[in-house]
Structures are given as structure tokens and as C-alpha cells.
């Protein structure tokens, strides 16, 4: 599993667009929002947690279809499937690699970018904590979606249609935690829910992803 994670990370770095692309996309969305809603600081402060979360979600979505598509194209996928590594581990390794290349940099960058949207200072720890718990779940669910659409020619578009509704609970709890934190309220409850979802997806999604991968490889 370690080998697979390291290989995917190395590929992401060498092929370019691994770390950078998702982050750049995140930045662009954040920059575009004030142009759309106006520069008023109070408005931006109100919507900042939501915008940051939606942008993180879209940035994670952007690279999902590459999780399995490249391995499918060059034929590594059947080779991995016949390797001694169980497919469940392959799916988990892929999710971890995806998280390290997108979720982790987003989590680290989001508090920095919060300044652009005039995020209230009290929200920073909650935003960071929420993203730290939520983005792994995004990657795990996304891996399932990518496994579902692996052989399809126009998989990318379908993938977003399938995966985005699954992201709804994470978005709700994540943005809610940051918003409550920003209003100076107690926000542990949504954060705990978020942690629960993250653990649940960690436990189940690799199995679901491996199941659909097997079906797709058949």
C-alpha cells in the first residue's frame, strides 16, 4: 500500500498539476466570488465559510476522475487487481494519495485564503478542523465515484453528478461548524458529526469502491 501511495504522489508531482492545480483552482474560485457578490466586507464575512467549503469541494472534485482513469488507460488496473494487494487496499491507497495531493494542501491553505474573504477570526480553528476532518471523507467518497465510472468515456461529467449529492452532509456540517465558530457559538456538535461521517466513510467506502472496481474490471 505504501508503494502505491508513494507512486501516486510521485506521479502527481512529476506529471505536474498534482498539488498545484487543485490549489490554484481553489484560489481562483475564492478570488472570483467577491467579483460576483460585491466587495462589501460584511457580506463576504457572512458567506466566507460557505464559499471556502464549496470551493474546497469543487477543487477536490476536479481531480477525482484521474484517480483511476490513468491506471485504466495504461492497463495497470488489471495488473493491480491481480497483484497480492487486495483491491480494498488499492482503493484506500488511492484515496489517501488523492487526499495528500488535494485535501491536505486545501486544508492548509484555506485559513490563509480566509483573509481574502474577510473570514471572522474566531472561525479559523473551526474551518481548519472541519476541513481536516471533512476532506478525507471527500476523497474517500470520490474514490468510490471514480471507481464507479472508471471505464466510461464521458465519466468526468457523470462523476460530478453522482458524487456531489453524496457530498451534501459533509458540506452542511463543515460549513455549519465554521459559521457557528465565526459567530462565536459552540461548534463542536457539527464537528463531531463531521468526524463521524469521516470515520464511517473510512470504514465502508474502500469496500464499496473495491466492489465496483471488480465489477468494472470483469
Amino acid at each position: 500500500m505504501k508503494a502505491l501511495i508513494l507512486r501516486d504522489l510521485r506521479l502527481a508531482i512529476r506529471a505536474g498539476g498534482g498539488f498545484g492545480l487543485g490549489l490554484a483552482f481553489f484560489l481562483i474560485v475564492i478570488v472570483l466570488v467577491p467579483f460576483g457578490v460585491g466587495p462589501e466586507a460584511a457580506v463576504l464575512r457572512r458567506i466566507a465559510p460557505g464559499i471556502l467549503w464549496v470551493a474546497a469541494l469543487l477543487a477536490a472534485l476536479l481531480s477525482l476522475d484521474r484517480i483511476f482513469a490513468l491506471d485504466h488507460e495504461d492497463g495497470s488496473l488489471p495488473l493491480l487487481a491481480t497483484a497480492p494487494l487486495p483491491l480494498e487496499s488499492v482503493a484506500l491507497a488511492k484515496a489517501i494519495a488523492h487526499w495528500i495531493t488535494t485535501g491536505l494542501p486545501l486544508t492548509l491553505a484555506a485559513p490563509g485564503l480566509g483573509f481574502l474573504l474577510n473570514l471572522s477570526p474566531a472561525a479559523y480553528p473551526w474551518l481548519f478542523g472541519g476541513l481536516a476532518l471533512g476532506t478525507p471523507a471527500l476523497s474517500l467518497i470520490g474514490t468510490f465515484g471514480a471507481a464507479l465510472t472508471v471505464g466510461l468515456r464521458r465519466g468526468g461529467l457523470l462523476l460530478s453528478l453522482l458524487v456531489l449529492p453524496l457530498y451534501v452532509p459533509i458540506l452542511i456540517f463543515g460549513a455549519e461548524a465554521a459559521r457557528r465558530g465565526g459567530d462565536g457559538l459552540e461548534a463542536t456538535v457539527p464537528l463531531v458529526f463531521l468526524g463521524g461521517i469521516a470515520l464511517g466513510t473510512l470504514a465502508l467506502m474502500p469496500f464499496a469502491a473495491a466492489l465496483v472496481l471488480r465489477i468494472n474490471l470483469r
Binding site: R7, R10, L11, R14, A15, D71, D74, G75, S76, L79
Partner: peptide
Amino acid sequence: ADGVKAPL
């Protein structure tokens, strides 16, 4: 197909 990764 070879399963060879071009960047490696």
C-alpha cells in the same frame, strides 16, 4: 497494455 507509468 503494459501498465508502464510514463513519468517514472
